[in-house]
Simulated scan of single mutants.
Amino acid sequence: MLWIDGTLIYSRQTQHQADYIFAIYPGQHDLRFRTKDREISVKGFYVEKGKRIVASFNAARDTVFSYSDKTLRQGQIITRMLPKEQIGNLGTAEINELKKQLISVTNNFGAWQLPNLNAQIELPAFIQTAGDLYYLNPESNTIYNNKLRTQVPLPVLVGPFPRTDIYNNIPKVAALIVDTTKIGRFEIEGGYQYTLYRDYQKLKNWDANYIRKDAYDFKPKLTFDEKIWAVGDIRKNVADKFSQLMQNSGGLAQFVTIKKTQSPKYLI
């Protein structure tokens, strides 16, 4: 879990596209990390405008650091080993905060069924807020339903939502878009499962098992190619799925005789 200036920004619990990269305003900020066995506070961390910064800290001991720009306040790293009962486990306060900050969304987005292939590609769905985009189904996540005797999509755990819209004087408003269709706006309230349609929305309390209580080791993938996703990246991801599926599919080719003035064509 990561807080920036006291606001929860990231949780490893979520299931949407959540690369470990964040947009942040220039200036000094206070960061707080909750790892498997420690709580690490970084005070006065400076972010320069227009630059991508990869930050790493020595969590073994407290550290004081300063900047060449004397107008900036001195920075500090404070590391605290967690009590034994919290090592590898989230505390009650952390679980309650996740319940307040996260929602789940029913995957009723639909899918494209490819002709002559026993395969589907889900329509891309994403939630858009004032400052962030949450790609809900970069990968298919299903479970076998014994009654229906088929795979069905699982709800998607999403959040947190540090930046949201105000619409008609209602705070914490976001919009759900499926492919190119705007399903509608909705008010975000943590701890609920949302089933969203164009004409109405349905809410119900969470299943208690949505929040994982174990805190496990997490080592972010270090890459300078990583970026914050935009709508164009979602479109490209879907196009890549179609391309990979077609490349990995095989079948018989039927030769069709057509007019002599044209070249023969193959139908797959």
Results as ranks from 00 to 15, higher is better:
Gln28Asn: 08
Val158Pro: 06
Val178Trp: 05
Leu8Lys: 10
Asp207Leu: 14
Val105Met: 04
Glu187Gln: 14
Ala239Trp: 00
Leu82Phe: 14
Tyr20Asp: 09
Asp165Leu: 15
Ala230Thr: 10
Glu85Gly: 05
Gly131Asp: 11
Ser263Asn: 13
Ile234Gly: 01
Gln13Val: 08
Glu94Asn: 11
Pro220Asn: 07
Asn89Gly: 06
Val47Ser: 04
Lys147Asn: 11
Thr150Phe: 05
Ala93Leu: 14
Glu94Ile: 13
Thr129Gln: 09
Gly232Cys: 00
Phe57Gly: 04
Glu187Pro: 00
Phe218Glu: 06
Ile258Phe: 03
Phe33Arg: 01
Glu85Ile: 15
His29Ala: 03
Arg73Gly: 10
Arg12Phe: 08
Thr257Tyr: 08
Thr92Trp: 04
Val105Cys: 00
Lys221Ala: 12
Ala23Asn: 10
Val158Ser: 04
Ala60Pro: 01
Ala253Gln: 12
Lys70Cys: 02
Leu133Gly: 05
Ile228Pro: 02
Ile188Ser: 05
Phe161Ser: 05
Ser68Tyr: 10
Asp214Ala: 10
Tyr266Ala: 12
Leu31Ala: 05
Leu148Lys: 12
Asn248Leu: 06
Ala119Lys: 15
Ser41Thr: 11
Phe22Gly: 03
Asn237Arg: 07
Leu2Gln: 10
Asp37Gln: 06
Ile177Arg: 08
Pro26Gln: 06
Thr63Tyr: 05
Thr150Leu: 14
Tyr200His: 13
Glu187His: 13
Ile87Asp: 04
Lys236Thr: 11
